[in-house]
Simulated assay, not measured.
Amino acid sequence: MNRVPMTVEGAEALRSELDDLKKVQRPAVVQAIAEAREHGDLKENAEYHAAREKQGFIEGRIQDIEAKLSMAQVIDVKAIEPSGKVIFGTTVTIIRVEDDSEVTYKIVGDDEADVKNRKISVNSPIARALIGKEEGDIVVVNTPSGSVEYEIDTVAHI
């Protein structure tokens, strides 16, 4: 079985969502189904069908989260000795050589990636180019519009 890297924060977020689904949303939808059944004919009962559809979504999401957590290799970056190298879980500030624009990314697992919040997947082209490099190194990232050079400004284990 292949292990999937995940940060401590990502695992906690999934566990929190799983807890909410099991303890709050699942009982609520079961109650909604019971109430809809009391209204009579189930063939033409829109409330019943909507509740059953929501139940299917909740059960599917529970299975999805449990599978992700069972395959996760949770990595606590704060427990790793800082070395100045870019590794999974580090926060990296890079400067585009061409125009000196600066951007900061945290390298996370595939399920945690969220570009709007500056979290990129360890399997993304930028992260793959950065992994193993150190502060001050120049990296070349191949993009659809051509190669882009970045300088690694800072690497933080936060």
Rank of each mutant, 00 (worst) to 15 (best):
A46M: 06
D76H: 12
I87G: 14
K22V: 05
V86N: 07
E59G: 04
T91K: 14
D137A: 04
I58G: 03
E47C: 00
E66M: 04
A113E: 05
S121T: 08
K78Y: 12
V77Y: 09
K78S: 09
R118L: 01
H157S: 05
I152P: 02
R26I: 02
I126F: 04
K133M: 06
D137M: 01
V8E: 10
V122I: 14
Q73H: 14
R96G: 07
E112K: 03
E53R: 06
V8M: 07
F57T: 05
V155A: 08
T90E: 06
V155G: 08
K22D: 04
I126M: 03
T93I: 00
K85L: 04
I138S: 11
A79Q: 14
G40P: 00
K119Y: 13
G132M: 02
S121V: 04
M6S: 10
G146Y: 01
M1I: 08
V4E: 15
Y105Q: 01
S145N: 08
E9P: 00
A46Y: 09
S101W: 14
K68M: 01
R3P: 00
T104Y: 09
D19P: 00
E149K: 08
I94E: 09
K116A: 13
D41E: 15
R15G: 07
K133G: 05
K23W: 12
E17Y: 12
P27S: 13
E151H: 01
